[in-house]
Design a protein around this nucleic acid. Sequence first.
DNA 1: AATCTTATCAACCGCAGTAGG
DNA 2: TCCTACTGCGGTTGATAAGAT
Length: 298
Amino acid sequence: MGRKPCCDKVGLKKGPWTADEDRKLVNFILTHGQSCWRAVPKLAGLLRCGKSCRLRWTNYLRPDLKRGLLSEYEENMVIDLHSQLGNRWAKIASHLPGRTDNEIKNHWNTHIKKKLRKKGIDPLTHRPLPLPTDEKSQEQENQNSSDKMYENVLTEKNMNELQSISEAPILEVTNYGFCTDEVLPLIEPHEILVSNSSAPCSSSSTTTTTTSSNTNMNSLLEDLEFLQTSDWLNGYYGSTTNINMGFWDMDDCFSNLDSLINDIDYDRINPPSAHDFNQFSRMLLGDECWKFELLRGD
DNA sequence: AATCTTATCAACCGCAGTAGG
DNA sequence: TCCTACTGCGGTTGATAAGAT
């Protein structure tokens, strides 16, 4: 007896998501929170299976995601963590703020693997690659370069941090300051306390502790309160009341909105013109623009 | 300019783990 | 204890962008 499919796939859409589908999904999750994924497509009016919705949200739509290539530091982290954890991409991702397992897996397969091989290191074992016997003369040279590679990758700082990771239970918040959904409990909409302050949210630090999470949560909530009370945004996006953001990393959450809040003279823009939207879009560099386009909701 | 090759990454598939009845 | 439903994870695929010829 075969396993029942996760959903009735007849009539369900597959392939790339459209902007409209993204908007529907984001709108639904921001309004109702993360609930049973199986129910999400129906409730959000999407012809997708719940699994597809979950994937789209976790890998692309989540507001706390970083976009763009991994930094050298992040890359070294991935290499170090991979040497300890193997292909446990989700675990590796849990130590890299704003990065998804899919993103790290892709980056590993397309960039890091090649880099390591080029440097004579087996990406599977993290050991120097075996050489053909007629290349013995180069062995010492490669060995030296491999050693140098390890020296570069495993700096004293990284080693110390890795030690702390390996010693600490994986669910604990580590030095890398990333809160996964394993760490942060889901916050129900009614549990969110909204501050009356209208002060813009300042940029947050990269460390995440319970305390700083609370601080950042307050900042974030201030941002969200602004969004709720902003006529122009409500007009385009609808009310953001009852927002459930329980599993987001507070440090990076809505960093793009931080930019908006810090840089824009809101009083001048009410309601926004097409020019204003263009101006906003330009403020969100590169891949960040997509988030704004979602909120724009045209 | 056209065609081919390679690189990238979003999305899918299927299995494993787990919670609840 | 077993069964079912559901979520999460890792491997893989496929579309397309970028670069080479």
